[in-house]
Write a protein that binds this DNA or RNA. Structure first.
Lengths: 239, 239
DNA sequence: GCATCCTTTGACCGTCCGGTCAAGGGACCG
DNA sequence: CGGTCCCTTGACCGGACGGTCAAAGGATGC
């Protein structure tokens, strides 16, 4: 659906995207009808299909723009940082700030990840962001700032923290962005640095850094029933 | 929809729940029609409405059962642990194992959280699990095992880690459950313990434990535009 | 005034949806 | 055997959905 748009046309298009974004986030994608969107904007139904090929196409465009914007903010936030750890911190903080300012878009991304039709688009953008964070984590590792481990997994864990804290504390409970961002950063840095023998020496003297000691490299995909194995190694014993 | 069911009736009911769960997870809740479900089970449409008041009611029941089961597993996993930190570890591990064994249910919980009609049910169960984890975190704090901070927020952060790693590494990439669980536990314990001055002493000597120093107690809800504040305090400086 | 082309209208289409219901099947009991 | 109650059928309902299209508007350049 690439058309030559006049200024007026471009405005109408933005108007439809803006209204649909709000409605999709508030009522859900499926429960929101095209009729509802055009009625909300105050135009005929044909207008919608003049600017978008389908309801799905509009949604995908919203997702695309959202991911692009988030990524841009992260890049901006990171430049100027001098150490890998500082880049990680700024990236997490930028994510939290973006999430605070773009409630609806985060909701839509969250939903899109659950629907097989949209999940691939989300995963793609997610992988890009994760690869970026993983790179900084690896940099920190090679500088000895952070213990060796699966950097990509750590990046995904940070993404999980940022997403969930944003939804719970920024959107649901409307807490102060800076405070929640600080907490998210602290948790993520703690997670990346890994659990350390605490101040007080533990009972067992063997201070084995827990299972994620990088080596086994996250074995190949498991087959059949998930292995509900024995508790493996008591990670907390290292404390 | 509380009926007196014969053995046969109870079986039919389970059959419908099982099929609908799979279908909802694979194709999405809205795109899956009641007609599709009854066709899949090989019965007439009336059967569905004999056992369930509505499509929504069935879905809510699936969610209820899922959350109940997860919680039971967590409780079982925790008993027998002697320290708060060990309880936290076992709880996280149990979540990962449950997620590995109940792919479809985790998917549905994830979706339900995005739809205003179902979100309250999810939030309720989530708050229970979080309160439980927060209690163990608080116990660990009062024993000096873990620095003081907002225990509930830390619990939510752990939930974010477990959920995202389960979806990404257990479901999507089918990695070994025990390995991913170890990584999740390690990250969570690191996050709860908080970033520590690393082995090598940092430039600035002031080893201020980062912003989450418990005190300001997560201020009241912010109003109006989200405060895209300056980067507050450079948490990573404490490293 | 005329031509062009972006824009808008809203009735209309076929389909599918969640949900209802009158009717009947069949197991068990007295 | 008749009665009861659990279970099943599938045609049917009203309505909503995503999407189409012939026709008309309106701005702009000539």
């Amino acid at each position: 659906m690439d058309r030559r748009l006049t200024t007026r046309g471009a405005q109408r298009r933005r108007q439809l995207i803006a209204f649909a974004t709000r409605r999709f986030a508030e009522r859900g994608y499926h429960p929101t009808s095209v009729a509802e969107i055009v009625a909300g904007v105050g135009v005929g139904k044909g207008v919608f299909y003049w600017y978008f090929a389908s309801k799905d196409a509009l949604f995908l465009e919203i997702l695309r723009e959202a991911q692009h914007d988030l990524r841009r903010r992260q890049s901006e936030a990171i430049e100027g940082a001098s150490t890998p750890v500082e880049r990680i911190e700024r990236g997490v903080r930028a994510s939290m700030e973006w999430s605070a300012a773009n409630r609806d878009l985060l909701t839509l991304i969250h939903f899109a990840a659950t629907e097989e039709a949209f999940a691939p688009a989300i995963r793609k953008g997610e992988e890009v962001a994760v690869a970026d964070a993983a790179r900084h984590i690896r940099d920190a590792m090679s500088e000895g700032e952070v213990p060796e481990a699966d950097a990509e997994l750590l990046a995904h864990a940070m993404l999980g923290v940022a997403g969930h804290l944003a939804r719970t504390y920024l959107h649901e409970r409307r807490r102060d962005t800076a405070v929640v961002a600080d907490a998210a950063v602290a948790f993520c840095l703690g997670g990346v640095l890994g659990p350390r023998p605490a101040a007080r020496p533990a009972a067992g003297s063997s201070t084995r850094p827990p299972a994620r000691s990088s080596a086994p490299a996250m074995g190949e995909p498991a087959t059949g029933e998930p292995a509900v194995t024995a508790p493996a190694a008591g990670v907390s014993r290292a404390l």
